[in-house]
Structures are given as C-alpha cells and as structure tokens.
Design a protein around this nucleic acid. Structure first.
Length: 562
RNA sequence: UGGGGCGUAGCCAAGCGGUAAGGCAGCGGACUUUGGAUCCGCCAUUCGCAGGUUCGAAUCCUGCCGCCCCAGCCA
C-alpha cells in the first residue's frame, strides 16, 4: 500500500522487504504476557504494531504470550483487552494465545529431537548455569548432550507425562556451547513446571520457553514482522534458528526487528516497580491516576487520542532514550483545548461581597463553552451579590506584575462585571483574610453596549449561593527526579511526597450538577479536569488531568530567583 | 576479557555523498474578558573524538572514547 516517506527505520525495512517481494501482505502482532497491567510503554508498542498494519493495509493480531502459568492470570488478559480496545485498536477475531499452540509446539519439539537437534538434559539448574560458562569464557557441553534419539524421545515423553519432578530435567536445543552469544549455548526449550494454566488447566506439566514459543507462534500466525524491544536483540539468532530448524508448513518466515522501549521522565516503567508501588501502598492501585499505566492514565482523564498522538510524536528508533513527560502533557492539553467545555470552578475559595449589588438579585449571564469553538454553544451562569474567587487571585500587598485583585484595584470577573476592591476583612485573631468587599461597575457587563473599559486581569468565580461543593484531586509527577532509577539508589527514595493533593472545599458552577464520571472539562485558568468514578449523587470528585500553562508561575519563579 | 547494540540541540528525532527537517522545552514579541488558546520570531557553522577517502562527509573507511543489553528451567 503506502510506501511513501518512511518515518522510522522499521518502515524502511518493510519497504525494502516489499520491494524485494519477500512478503505480500504485512502482518504484525502485539504479544503481551498476561502478568500485569499495560503501561504507556506498551502503548508505544501497540501503536507501532497496529499502526504499521493499518498503514500497509495489513493485519495486527493480539496474542497473549502465556507460557508461564506461575505468573499469569485471566484478570490480566481482561484488563489488557480493555486497555487495547480503549486505545482505539481492533484485533477483530484475531485473539490468540501462545497456549493455543502447545500441542503443535510439542510436536515440533519431538521432531527436533528426531533430527538430532534437541536433547533432554538431567543437569540441575545450578549445574546448567555452571556449564553455561561466563560472558568471556565458553561453556561446557552437558554429559547428557549426546544421548540417543530414542532415549531423548522416551525421556521427553515421560517429562510430558509427569513422570519427573519439577525442575529435574529440561529439553535443550543442541546449538553451540562455545558461542559468544549466551543464548546460543544450548538454550532451554522446555521445562517441567506444575501449576494450573489459566487456559489449559492441568493438561500440561511442561511449558515451552519464550525463545521456543515466540518464533513458532509468529510463524503459525503468518506474522511477517515480529517487532520487539532491544533486549531481545541477541535472541534474534536463536529466533532464526528456531524458525529454520523446526518443521513448519508455512512458507513465510517472520523477521524479528527490535526498537528501543519508552522511558518517561519522572516515573518508572517496569512492571516489577509498578507492582511494588501498588503492593506497598504508595499508590491506590494499578489505576491510580498518578500511575503511567493505561488504566491510570484513563482514570486521570487522558484521552486515547492524546496518547496515540504522543506515540506518534516520540518516534521509533534504536537508541535508549528518556522522553520528557512534558511532551505527554502537551499532547493532552492540545487535544483537550479543542474538545473540553470550559467551566468555572474555585479550588481555594475566598468570599467576595459586592456591596453595591442588590441583595436578592440574580442574573443569568451568558458564557461560551469554548471560545475557540462557537459551535460548542453557550450556557447560563448565575451571578449574585456574594461570590467566591480563588484565594491566590487576591493579594493584600501584591508583587510587581501581579494584575489580579488587590486593595483599590480593579479586575474583570469573567463573563460578568468589573469589580473594585474596597475593603479587606480579616480574622481578628489569626489575621487571615476571610472576606473581600468590592463594588461593581454596572456599565461593564459583558456583552453590553456600555462595556468599554479594559482592565488587566480577569478572574474566574462562582456565585456563592448557587455553587456546588466538590472535591478536587491535584496530581503532580510521581517522582521528583527525572530518572528515579538512576545511580543505583532505591527509586522509592525519589517519590514525590506532594504527588497528590486533595482539596475538599472546592466550589464549582451549578452546570456541573449533571457531570458524569469520565466527563472532561477545562476549569477556567486552572487546567483540565475529569470526573472521577468516586463521584456519587451528593459528592462530585474531579481529577486534575493537567494544569494549564502558567505564565504567572514562571514570572513568580523568576522573581524569587532574583 | 566474549557477544549484541547505540551516540545528531536541554529532551525526542529526521537525515542514507550535495552543504543540519520537525516536535517538546526554553527565550523574545503581537493579540487576548482564561497570565489559556492563537500568531510571529529566536534557539546545532555542526552531527561522541581523531585521522583518512572525496571537488564535497552527519552520511564512506580506520582507530579511539562513552553509554546500554546478555551468564532465568522469566518474558
């Protein structure tokens, strides 16, 4: 199909293969092991594999690499399917499992033995390690390496029949104990491991290793390009060995291609570490909105579109890299700027009384839902004598360039009037500001003919008697360090103690009464927020997806540094 | 000391012998009833380093340096 402008080295390879007529149709696969939840690193692989298939008019399979029952579970297969679907990809009826091929794999292993290319080894795990040699010294051949085909056949069948203890024997490929590539030093193909498999139950007590199962699964499914991460690069000769030495009846030979996995700043990506965060209670679960898991990002409010866009932008290459999380944040902002309706919410309320506004008057002001998109319409927002503004938006003794509310100063209330601060009321004991008294200028009503004055600052607000109470959860990076796993220290030493801040006294505009879990909004001047599933009939809970870009925060930082 | 990879801006990343794309971040400025958005401009005389080939090298050759991965009966 489209052989135009390859955007990465994998497309170059595919274009070349197509030009040489090595393959007719492109077929990829996404092969997760159902032993944990998917994270954004997997999203990169999913987008790559499904994306290439789509781009070349081919297909992409979803295949669970379930060859180790001790670590795998149906819980994970369901979660993985949900995540892939949510990201926007469809594997149609091509949902496969390596375990679907266990019979075939066994048969192929038997054939390998008959061909004199595999043998049953009685060495213990420790002995196998010793015989393997080291990185710099060659290995030694096992004393069992030259058993007769008949004996191997008999032993392997008895392994399958459960006659031997777990770990007492393995089937090994007969390749080269002196190879510089440790993977080629007679790799283990099958091990004995009792345990109930989530799909095959107790049918098997021997399970194939990844290096044997993966190339066979690929070949059986007609995969043309088997894309995996860099650490499998030195498994490629073994992958090819299996493809070439096993008696397959398919004629297309899959090709393994390796790319660099994603690393994201200010977080961790390994399943082991993520699991640790969950199990030790540093986060509330796999779907904690601070987690880089797909389920965490979903709950946080990230859109699938923004994640796909991110995956497009980071590119695909072979150098180990660390992508700045700011790019991910940029991608959601860009997406949500287009689609999120704007709404007013005061996170840290400060009461403002407009002294010259009639006590019992209420005006319903017209407010646009998205200034960039008039087609998103307008809504009515109630305005009255008592309102809340953001505590940060008032300062008694304002610094330079602060153009919000301060004594004797004027600001515009978004969609409403210009108000002027007349008086500050403080708590007599604590000195805390409890209320600000203002006056408004009736000539300045938004949209009216008399509204001609301009002021520097515009604030968001909510009418006190109309406001809804809400809880807002503010999230920050999970780790304070760009790379928490750097310099050998425990990554948990760099957990950000302020990664979650819960605000329980927030006031939001009444139109949010109908907000439902999953809905996303822009809280004017604050950021993008998503309704959390913890929301109940009488309690609104919002997650901050990402803040808006904050020029004022930057100015403040500069002022502090002076 | 073996094998496999990778080095282009603060972070990603194109580039494939014809004179360094693009994005993020950053910095300036315009506009603005979101300090948002938008717009406009700046941001690598040089591609890890050193030699060589060539009219011409990030691209080809040689040598060095640095970083990552591999010694699971995990994937």
């Amino acid at each position: 199909m489209s052989e135009n402008k390859p955007s990465n080295f994998i497309e170059h390879i595919i274009n070349a293969d197509l030009a040489e007529k090595k393959y007719e149709k492109i077929h990829t696969r996404f092969p997760p092991e159902p032993n944990g939840y998917l994270h954004i690193g997997h999203a990169k692989s999913i987008c790559l594999n499904f994306g290439i298939a789509e781009q070349y008019g081919g297909l992409c399979n979803l295949r669970f690499d379930d060859t180790n029952p001790s670590k795998e579970d149906v819980e994970y297969v369901e979660a993985i399917k949900e995540d892939v679907r949510w990201l926007g990809f469809d594997w149609e009826d091509r949902e496969y499992y390596a375990s679907d091929y266990f019979d075939k794999m066994y048969e192929l292993a038997v054939q390998l033995i008959k061909d004199g290319k595999a043998y049953v080894d009685d060495l213990s795990p420790e002995e196998i390690r010793e015989y393997r040699g080291t990185l710099t010294e060659p290995g030694k051949e096992s004393p069992y390496r030259n058993r007769s085909v008949e004996e191997n056949l008999d032993l392997f069948e008895r392994m399958k029949n459960g006659e031997f203890e777990d770990g007492s024997r393995v089937l090994r490929a007969k390749i080269d104990m002196r190879s510089g590539n440790l993977n080629m030093r007679d790799p283990v193909l099958y091990r004995i491991q009792r345990g109930t498999h989530h799909r095959t139950g107790d049918k098997w007590c021997i399970y194939p290793m990844y290096d044997f199962a993966h190339p066979i699964s690929d070949a059986l499914e007609g995969i043309t390009h088997s894309i995996c991460t860099l650490e499998f690069e030195d498994h490629r000769p073994l992958y090819n060995w299996v493809v070439e030495n096993v008696k397959l009846d398919t004629e297309t030979r899959p090709k393994q291609i390796e790319f660099a996995r994603l690393n994201l700043s200010h977080t961790v990506m390994s399943k082991r570490k993520l699991r640790q965060l969950v199990e030790e209670g540093h986060v509330s679960g796999w779907d904690d909105p601070r987690m880089p898991t797909i389920s965490g990002l979903r709950r946080r409010g990230y859109t699938p579109e923004s994640i796909r866009d991110f995956c497009d932008r980071i590119g695909v290459a072979k150098s180990n890299s660390m992508v700045d999380i700011a790019l991910l944040e940029h991608c959601v902002r860009e997406d949500l700027n287009e689609r999120a309706p704007r709404v007013m919410a005061v996170l840290n309320p400060l009461k403002v009384v407009i002294e010259n506004y009639p006590e019992d008057r209420v005006e319903y002001l017209e407010a646009e839902n998205n200034p960039g998109k008039p087609e998103m319409g307008t809504r009515k927002v109630p305005f009255s004598r008592e309102i809340y503004i953001e505590r940060d938006d008032f300062q008694e003794d304002p610094p330079k360039k602060f153009f919000r509310l301060a004594p004797c100063r004027e600001v515009r209330l978004k969609h409403a009037y210009i108000i002027k601060c007349e008086k500050v009321i403080k708590d007599e004991k604590t000195g805390e500001i409890v209320e600000v008294r203002c006056t408004y200028d009736p000539e300045t009503k938004s949209g009216s003919a008399t509204n001609v004055r301009k002021v520097k600052g515009t604030l968001h607000w909510v009418s006190a008697k109309h406001a809804l109470d809400a809880e807002v959860r503010l999230y920050d990076h999970l780790f304070t360090k760009e790379n928490p796993e750097e310099d050998g220290a425990d990554f948990k030493d760099h957990l950000n103690p302020n990664s979650l801040q819960v605000l329980t006294a927030c006031k939001v505009e009444p139109s949010l009464a109908s907000a439902e879990p999953g809905n996303r909004y822009q809280f004017l001047r604050k950021g993008y927020f998503c309704v959390d599933p913890d929301t109940t009939g009488d309690r609104l809970v919002f997650n901050r997806i990402v803040s808006l870009k904050d020029t004022w925060a930057k100015i403040q930082k500069k002022q502090q540094n002076k």
